[in-house]
Design a protein around this nucleic acid. Sequence first.
DNA 1: ATCACGACCTGGAGGC
DNA 2: TGCCTCCAGGTCGTGA
Length: 278
Amino acid sequence: MPELPEVESVRRDLIRRRLRGRRIVRVRGSGKPLRMNRPVPLAGLGRAARGRRIVALERLGKYLLLGLDGGPQLLCHLGMSGNLLIVPRRQPWAPHTHVVFELDDGRDLRFVDPRRFGLIDVCPRAGARAHPALAGLGVDPIAEGLPDGYLWTKAQRRTAGVKALLLDQHVVAGVGNIYASEVLWLARIAPGRPARRLGPDGARALSLAIDEVLRFAIDNGGTTLRDFVGAGGEPGENGEYLLVYGRDGTPCPRCRTKVRRRVDQGRATYFCPTCQKR
DNA sequence: ATCACGACCTGGAGGC
DNA sequence: TGCCTCCAGGTCGTGA
């Protein structure tokens, strides 16, 4: 589910719902492991968070960072099926609720993740990329912006397809499988074109398309295919505006050729065989 | 270093 | 109804 626009939508929801300034009074959880079968460090989360106020809500790529007063940060990744929800404490825990931060105003911040591909961890110091999960991340195209020429420097030595470049979080932090197809369509680039053959102009077109696709999706509250909801439980509207993802067999919005589906590195790609030739 | 692939886990959809 | 297979927004470890 959650690519950059969905995580950004959650971040904005959390701000709108006045999470900032709240104090965490207790941390509980299911005890089940998350990503990589690693246990959630509930005791460490409790030590880091108990009694502290949430003073910052940031995002880097698909990671959400909750800054606490006094220095530590809580790191959250939604994986494939994760949701962060603000709910009244009296509401029973939904199935697959794995981490619960009890707040000082009678609400809970809950992490619910059926497939358990997510991550919740402590970053002891608030250094920008102090956690190993963040250390190798590439540039966030929204929070940081892709510098001129950046993509082309990253693309030059790559023989794999442009889609793989887009999905590599060490290069661009935040693009996932849905928006990769959308970006390639907008930039008129064939998904399998070797990245090194993009050229500076193709890479520039790609940068612009990334920016446009992600901003548009954020404005629509992200894409809900199945599981994704914002912090208040509402789905995103962007699915209605997807141009090619999931639309195989329908006419390309530009040239009316039928959109095709194919599989690259095990993941579905949707594209127009006529107008994506670059 | 780069690349392709399978594994991780659960649930929904569709076929029979 | 039930059972089976396939598929899904992400990441990580492996081996070539």
